[in-house]
Design a protein around this nucleic acid. Structure first.
Lengths: 229, 229
DNA sequence: CTTTTAAACGGACCTCGGTCCGGATCGTAA
DNA sequence: TTACGATCCGGACCGAGGTCCGTTTAAAAG
């Protein structure tokens, strides 16, 4: 159901666009790993984990994210409450596990997929495509993304977010070798925060096209490149 | 204790730097209002409100923000639990009320204080000063700022944050009349998010000087102005 | 000063996230 | 097959945020 451990071999084909800064090491073999589960589980544990994820997904479909109560999930999966917490840590852990599959797909796309998201396109173009992809993916799963947001002190520590930000940083380093790409990548990622997307689209009524244009403009400004007409 | 309703009359003195874009209307009389309380309270209500804020502040000083339990605050203020919730809505409301005084001071500074924060300096300079001021103020009250962060769906709706963002937007409009300053201001504000500051300084170990430099650089990129050496 | 009413009060009560520990179960090694 | 230890299970339990509603009280009207 939600198993999978993608292993993605990056384009054996050479990138068509030779890059000026070749020195930046970009690993050639990248593994897309799950962000949530530990390496190996006992048979019953694995079975219960699957049952819990399935139950949670069903509850979301029926009653929305708000209906996903730890006790309800446990009951729906015919499992004790403690089991849910042992497996997923806390509520956000469970919700993030539900997002894991989509997160892995996205990561596979920009790590090893076709351009402009994947390698092969020039970094600025990849950056643009990345933002747009994340934007629409978050918009699709907005409720779940919002509910899965951990408390402020852990918001940036989460590994799935880190992976996205690292990718942005790698791209930025190719474009701006002398800038503080660590900070700039945080800024760019902040624009893609589901909470912000939610605010702008649902509370301010902005259409997604405007957010998309805003991303393209932001990338142009941050990278000091001319904005594409 | 935490009363006050600042009324700030903006510089009767003319700004020393004449601005090219004079058309943008910047109000001359601005009132700095509290973000939390309703206009008028009954005597007992006002008294209890003060007692609650004092009790909360004392609890923070003694046991840290984590020790600020609604029941504990109510008990320390010798007041019923329901009273706390009726006055402040929820826990974050109470914590934000504690931050209100500092928020008003900041607002007064950038609305009517001396340059470069207040009116009189060129917009870009004011923007730089604004970010630095917010940065250090948030760093001082980090724990409280983090705890006062509402759930994701309300994070951007809060009026104190809106006021700061609006100011950034006004400045941006003076610098970039043709840009989507609404979105750009969101991006800039995101850099000043207490949760991000917390992550970068405490979890990544960055010094504040780096964050400060990052802000200056970001402003330069976003406004497409040369970075000040 | 009395009446009246809208507002405030207080604490019992509910829900839900999270913890804990005695007992059951799995996997392995003998 | 049996024995054993590590892992997992389950649900009672706890704390804290938030709600509700009968009672009290400030303060305006008569």
């Amino acid at each position: 159901m939600f198993p999978v451990l993608y292993a993605v071999f990056m384009s054996s084909a050479l990138p068509p666009f030779p890059k000026p800064e070749e020195s930046i090491s970009e690993p050639r073999l990248l593994e897309v790993r799950s962000f949530t589960d530990e390496p190996c589980l006992r048979a019953d544990a694995a079975r219960n984990r699957a049952k819990l994820l399935e139950a949670a997904a069903r509850l979301i479909a029926e009653h929305g994210v708000a209906g996903v109560t730890m006790e309800a999930v446990a009951a729906a999966a015919e499992v004790g409450k403690g089991t849910v917490f042992r497996r997923f840590g806390d509520r956000t852990g469970l919700l993030m596990a539900l997002l894991d599959h989509s997160a892995q797909t996205l990561q596979a796309d920009f790590l090893g997929g076709p351009p402009p998201l994947g390698p092969g396109a020039p970094p600025v173009e990849r950056l643009r495509a990345f933002g747009v992809a994340v934007l629409y993916r978050s918009a699709e799963q907005l409720d779940l993304q919002l509910a899965a947001q951990p408390e402020p002190t852990r918001r940036f520590a989460h590994s799935a977010l880190q992976a996205l930000r690292t990718h942005v940083m790698v791209l930025l380093r190719q474009i701006l070798p002398d800038a503080d790409c660590e900070l700039l990548s945080q800024t760019l990622m902040a624009y893609l925060d589901p909470a912000l997307i939610n605010h702008l689209t649902r509370q301010c009524g902005m259409p997604m096209e405007r957010l998309e244009a805003g991303w393209v403009d932001l990338v142009a400004r941050v990278t000091r490149t001319p904005s594409p007409c």
